[in-house]
């Protein structure tokens, strides 16, 4: 895991990452509630972090959220004309608060 974090920090693309707040609007529209303070558990390293603290890559056709502890992918989000597709296989769970 340490190696992976070192890799993330050495990656020239690290400068392109932003924090989870950047996709707060998209997530709020998809889930219907504010999500940046929502805790989620990384399925890989089991670290629990709020969505706002995850590392976001959003310069591609979709959005990728990575675990701030181990850098594995937690969520992938793609917006299509049909709707918002969320690949959450990297999340053990997400807590969505009652609105």
């Amino acid at each position: 895991m340490e190696d992976r974090i070192a890799m993330m920090h050495d990656d020239p693309a690290v400068d392109l990452t932003v924090d989870g707040s950047a996709v707060g609007g998209m997530l709020a529209a998809a889930f219907g509630v504010e999500m940046t303070a929502a805790p989620g558990q990384c399925a890989h390293c089991h670290t629990v972090s709020v969505v706002g603290a995850m590392r976001v890559y959003m310069r591609g056709p979709g959005v990728v959220l990575r675990c701030p502890a181990c850098a594995e992918v937690v969520l992938r989000i793609v917006q299509t004309p049909r709707g918002t597709m969320i690949d959450a296989r990297g999340a053990a769970y997400l807590v969505i608060e009652r609105g």
Binding site: D19, G20, S21, T36, V50, V51, G52
Partner: peptide, 10 residues
């Protein structure tokens, strides 16, 4: 516009 957005960086 839409918002307000975010509950973490607050």
């Amino acid at each position: 516009v839409r918002g307000p957005i975010g509950g973490y960086f607050v």
